[in-house]
Write a protein that binds this DNA or RNA. Structure first.
Length: 448
RNA sequence: UGGGAGAUGGUGCAAUGGUAGCACGACUGACUCUGGAUCAGUUAAUCGUGGUUCGAAUCCACGUCUCCCAGCCA
């Protein structure tokens, strides 16, 4: 690349300039007014060659001189007003160390690097459209293999930011735990969150490619994972916010093995046994002392089916001193095991046998930003969602979960898709909620 | 007279002179031991004004709006 710069000097298409950064800016003109030529623009080829060699040799301090392309100081496109190609930086490079003290600028490096690599099509985002004439100019001036740069609109996702600089800020300011924080729209973040590669590719295919400013709804990404995970994820029962249920007429000490299917979408995934006993955990959400209309779950006097097991009826609510519900007493109907019944029950809820329960943690994620377009706000950080992460530390899961490995994905029945996080230890499994299941009841209840 | 790009349902992408279509969302309903999944249906769009044409989202003219550019960042 250095040799190419020398070549441009020899062709009279580049010159060494002594102007300071501020002076260059001043000479560049404005959007509506043309710039004016630097006093050093007319230096001879010999002088330029000499000066450039001395720049490279380290004779001048940082910022003292630059190498600029000689194009057109009156161009409407500011990128063509004699852009800087090389500047002096006495700095160590992470690969070449102290070998160089002059470094090329992006525009000068871009096309030539593509050319060396024999890239045929160089894809980038729309903001580089103004740089393409320069990209082409360098390649043409050099007469080397000419790749073609094509610009496309970047993908904007709702309720997040995708700018690398903003993402970097989130990391630096510890707003997220790192680049792979499960809330980050990075590949490592999505992966840790539990998104499958297939679902991401499917998403990319569906959103297409265009040149218009866009804002893709997060709902589409979520749809893609749900669709993929629905097909592949093992179902399992886990209770996120446990509430104790005691089945009064079930023999103490008795344990039954209940068969449960691992994936209703794929019979080949088989079945497993889930232990059932007198004391169970159910979801706090699945009981209401004063149920709203159309509430199909458990409430005083009401019946509900325990998934794969029996129909139970709530007979009594036990509260503590503060009036909080701490336990539900029920009776079960022995004739209704595994779906058998002489009557219809509207609701089916998941459960975990208390004595067999495996303790686990769950991390529930919400969008990182409250507004669909946080970028629209000058102060985009004000849109950060303070509740984008909720840690639940008292969850329980069926025994089958005990030896889940990091990265493994499950569907917790009725709640969502979860992925074992890398923070998990042998004693304590941590699950990331990839995405919740579609919850039509939540929508109905919201309407009240 | 700065330069460049772009405007199609709520969202994203198609249709390049010939019935504006697909997906997501939203809303109905059916079914269901996951209020999951599935199935059926409904909703809703060509930035504006002229012009060319038998016929325009598409071609032409004028206008409107949005985005990007004044780093020795990438």
């Amino acid at each position: 690349m250095y040799q190419w710069a020398v070549e441009l000097i020899k062709k009279g298409k580049a010159y060494v300039d002594d102007l300071s950064m501020d002076e260059i800016r001043e000479y560049r003109g404005t959007l509506t007014q043309p710039g004016k030529a630097s006093p050093h623009r007319a230096r001879s080829v010999e002088e330029n060659l000499d000066l450039f060699a001395r720049m490279r040799a380290g004779e001048f301090p940082d910022g003292a001189k630059t190498l600029r392309a000689k194009i057109d100081m009156a161009a409407g496109n500011l990128n063509l007003r004699d852009p800087v190609m090389y500047r002096i930086r006495h700095a160590a490079h992470h690969r070449t160390g102290d070998a160089w003290c002059i470094y090329p600028l992006y525009d000068w490096a871009h096309g030539q690097s593509d050319s060396i690599e024999r890239v045929t099509h160089s894809l980038c985002t729309m903001e580089y459209e103004d740089h393409r004439p320069l990209y082409d100019w360098y390649l043409d001036a050099l007469g080397i293999f000419h790749p073609r740069q094509i610009e496309f609109a970047r993908l904007n996702l709702s309720h997040t930011v995708v700018s690398k600089r903003k993402l970097l800020q989130l990391v630096n300011e510890k707003i997220v735990a790192g680049w792979d924080d499960p809330r980050m729209p990075t590949l490592s973040g999505l992966r840790r969150r539990g998104f499958t590669p297939e679902s991401i590719r499917d998403f990319c295919e569906r959103i297409g490619v265009g040149k218009t400013q866009n804002l893709i709804e997060l709902a589409l990404l979520e749809h893609c994972v749900r669709e993929d995970l629905n097909r592949r994820a093992r179902r399992v029962m886990a209770v996120l916010r446990p509430l104790k249920v005691v089945i009064e007429n079930y023999p103490a000490g008795q344990v039954e093995e209940i068969q449960a299917v691992n994936n209703p979408e794929d019979a080949a995934m088989g079945t497993r046994a889930v232990p059932f006993a007198r004391e169970l955990w159910i979801e706090q959400d699945d009981f209401r002392e004063n149920p709203p209309p159309k509430y199909f779950r458990l409430s005083p006097g009401a019946e509900v089916r325990l998934r794969y097991a029996y129909i139970i009826k709530c007979t009594n609510v036990v509260k503590n001193d503060r009036g909080e519900i701490v336990q539900i007493n029920c009776t079960y109907d022995p004739a209704t095991r595994g779906g058998a019944a002489d009557r219809k029950v509207k609701g089916t809820i998941h459960w975990v046998s208390a004595q067999h329960a495996h303790a686990l943690q769950a991390r529930l994620y919400d969008t990182l930003f409250l507004a669909p377009k946080p970028d629209e706000d000058e102060n985009w950080q004000a849109q950060i969602n303070p509740h984008s992460l909720e840690r639940l530390t008292n969850c329980v899961g069926e025994p089958a979960l005990a030896n889940a490995a990091p990265g493994e994905r499950f569907q917790f029945e009725r709640t969502g898709y979860f992925c074992v996080d890398s923070d998990s230890t042998r004693e304590q499994l941590v699950f990331n909620r990839t995405v919740s299941l579609r919850d039509t009841w939540a929508k109905v209840e919201k309407g009240f």
